[in-house]
Design a protein around this nucleic acid. Structure first.
Lengths: 334, 334
DNA sequence: ATGGAGATTGAAAACGGTTTCAATCCATCC
DNA sequence: GGATGGATTGAAACCGTTTTCAATCTCCAT
């Protein structure tokens, strides 16, 4: 691989001049420029990105850390982030934390040492604030709410409203015995949804019934099973997310419980898959693409020194009614 | 961020010595070492990875390029690759080519310029051989077969055998009118499966019936629809992959076609999702984790200068029978 | 002719590590 | 007592860019 000095030698100029034509950082005589470009073209020279990063202390790399790429919600998010990053001229490094704070820290450390320009992270750390404070480069929090004081940048959907919408919908569908499968409460997203559920229950005079559940298939299967045993009269299930909802539907189908006739199910996220399942899933839709795009745009702006006026962006959710729930007809009501 | 020279100054040694204790590349006096380590600990010094890469012309980064992270097959593969890479001390950069050869080349270019140590790629390039030849760093081809001459490293499942197994299974299930939804024939994986299908058809005296289909949900929905119109008597569908099979099942369910009673379906890949669908999918299982682990192990070995004796690894597939197919009972046979 | 101003250019110093090479020190061996 | 040799160490070059700073050149107004 040729170096810039080699190009300079062949074009009878200094490396500085080659750098200038490469980056357009200063005017160079058109004739000289043509000569340099010719040599570059002929040799197929490509500047070494590492040397460039070292010199500029910037790599045009954005790191993205998610709990797990196995959840389609995060891969769809990552796709949106990548698209926007790419559009703005950044490369994206996608990292899996496996919900392991240590691995998460290791990746942050790695990214900083690679001169990454920014980090977009859905942290699983209990102490989000410490993380943010310790990070010397722009960071935006995805899908989680940092505590007020840190005033970190964050983009997320309105999970509280989502919890409310889902619960209200099940009530509208005639459910009397709604059980919520709560995601891990250390995540603000899960906590907010639960809060929305509880508030609606109180308003409607229902007693909240809750089951803890991780955000994955395996635990979804397990917890659905125990849920059915613990609450034999359940007629509505609010799944922790779509992936869990899929497990719920799976277990119900295996037990020949008719959906939505006996039990109605609502998911959360509206991943692409939710419309392809059989039956198609009623769910709370997050604007996944908008969240990802916005997060990437914010880091890019920060990297380029454009201060963002608004630090916290909470995007609206929407109820998407499909086949796992059924609005009660007025005449059915006694 | 402190530099190595700063540490050297504080520890009253030269940068060379600090480097030596950091890397263990040469013996240093225990007392000196202790002094250096103390300073490192106190300052929280972390070596700059970029400078290190530049100097060593190696970054301990492995690039992984897949067509799309939206297909769970590739995310599961990526997870396995990441785990093995991580275990061997490499970072993984995951890139989406979107099945766009230009984007693919751009990523390869980027990786080379970042001093990536190796590349694992599921290429969508028609001319795989040119790609491989042009790449100055270790590369292993995933899920595709390079042409004999290049003798590039590759890891893949036995797609031909998979095509055969699936077809034979449908025949065993009593299907007389099997239609294959072929993936894009420019991919050797799709071509091999088709070949397996055709061979079994010939052996069994069936006439092959084929429909072209991309490897994604959207096209799966579209092509299932046209398939049903084109072949009204179809009683067995061989989907291009599990993702397409999911679409097939979706369309059949929407049209109230009973599965497997009227039409039986077999997928390909055995992604995690296939067991969670309703009905659970009969499919040809690829050893996804083994493929990923092996690919990562091979690049790592190559990077570390251990020549691999065997360039091509073809791993076995297996038939996984679930609910979308039904073996014919002997007594049912007339 | 002279003095700037502005346009081009190159030398050299970064950036923050690693590595080669030679120097120094000290113990050991004839 | 001097030669030998191994263990430690540091100076300096190097990796391949960018960037600062000063030098040179050109052109034009005075």
């Amino acid at each position: 691989m040729a170096t810039i000095r080699e190009i300079a030698r062949q074009a009878h100029v200094s490396p500085a001049t080659v750098s200038r034509v490469l980056n357009g950082t200063a005017a160079v005589d058109p004739q000289t420029e043509a000569r340099v470009l010719k040599v570059i073209r002929e040799t197929g020279y490509r500047p070494n990105e590492v040397a460039r990063s070292l010199s500029k202390r910037s790599s045009r790399i954005i790191g993205c850390i998610v709990p797990t790429i196995a959840n389609p919600f995060f891969t769809e998010l990552a796709r949106a982030i990548e698209d926007e990053s790419f559009r703005r001229g950044y490369k994206l490094i996608l990292c899996n934390s496996d919900e392991d704070p240590a691995k998460e820290e290791a990746y942050i450390d790695m990214l900083e040492r690679m001169n990454a320009d920014g980090i977009i992270i859905t942290t699983t750390h209990e102490d989000m604030d410490a993380l943010i404070k310790a990070c010397p480069i722009p960071m935006v929090i995805l899908d989680r709410a940092p505590s007020q004081e840190t005033a970190a940048y964050s983009v997320r959907a309105d999970h509280y409203q989502g919890g409310r919408l889902a619960t209200e919908h099940l009530v509208d569908c005639g459910c009397q015995n709604i059980v919520m499968m709560c995601g891990p409460q250390k995540y603000t997203s899960a906590a907010k949804r639960l809060q929305g559920y509880r508030d609606v229950c109180r308003e409607k005079g229902l007693v909240p019934q809750e089951v803890d559940c991780d955000f994955d298939f395996a635990d979804g299967l397990l917890k659905t099973d125990s849920l059915l045993r613990q609450f034999p009269d359940v007629d509505g299930i609010l799944a922790a997310n779509d992936v869990v909802a899929l497990s719920v539907v799976k277990v119900l189908a295996a037990q020949k419980v008719p959906i939505p006739d006996q039990i109605q199910v609502v998911g959360f996220d509206n991943i692409y898959l939710s419309q392809l399942m059989t039956p198609a899933l009623t769910t709370i839709g997050q604007p996944i693409t908008a969240i990802g795009t916005m997060a990437a745009a914010i880091v890019a702006d920060l990297v380029e020194g454009q201060a963002q006026p608004q630090k916290t962006r909470v995007l609206p959710v929407e109820l998407v009614i499909r086949e796992t729930s059924c609005l009660q007809n007025p005449e059915d009501k006694q």
